[in-house]
Amino acid sequence: MTIGTMFNLLTYASPLAELEVGKQFYWHLGNFNIHGQVLLTSWFVIGLLVIVSVLATRKVQMVPSGVQNLMEYALEFIRDLTKAQIGEKEYRPWVPFIGTLFLFIFVCNWSGALIPWKLIHLPEGELAAPTSDINTTIALALLTSLAYFYAGFRKKGLGYFGNYVQPVAFMIPFKIIEDFTKPLSLSFRLFGNILADELVVAVLVFLVPLFVPLPVMALGLFTSAIQALIFATLAAAYIGEAMEEHHD
């Protein structure tokens, strides 16, 4: 990988400026390969989310404070987002899925931007945001596809295929293509944004190790949050679209 070797040349500068693109820390599970560095950080993220959830609901109060307040704010935000996309009547069962998408991607992105993972050395590859690995984003995007198919079929049965001829019959090929482009665009948008942000920050840190990367890092935080929001909103919109009633 030429990009990889190019960036490996930069590694003498500092551990924070180090960047290894496309190098994976492989674990072998039977005949299958798994990217260990992705799973390690994702476990960290999952652990963080679970711990915060437990802290927030440990002693629930009518007048919230502290962690409970924060998580209630998050929950209300997620509910509003889901309600806006899916609609008042159907949104409730989808709150956990959409909400977890948002929280998981958001915490993944911010952990990549805020935690100096690179200081922890792995035999090969490096720790980074799990969302900067294509496997994670494709997994999430495919789950979203499954979710909206499930939503459509559960709501309308085989009538879901009626969606493909809405509003006119010649939309069928486009609608079918859409089923492929939706997960593709979802996964590549997230993957590209997060990876690009990490690359830009790492290159800038290598070139000018002081102060100059800070605005880009701040921008990275912003992009990370926006990407999480976009992914969750689009997923909710797809689900809402699949369940939409057509009156003709």
Binding site: G22, F32, N33, I34, D133, I134, N135, I138, A139
Partner: peptide, 8 residues
């Protein structure tokens, strides 16, 4: 970069 495997 596009190493898709059992991680997915």
């Amino acid at each position: 970069l596009f190493d898709i495997d059992a991680t997915l």
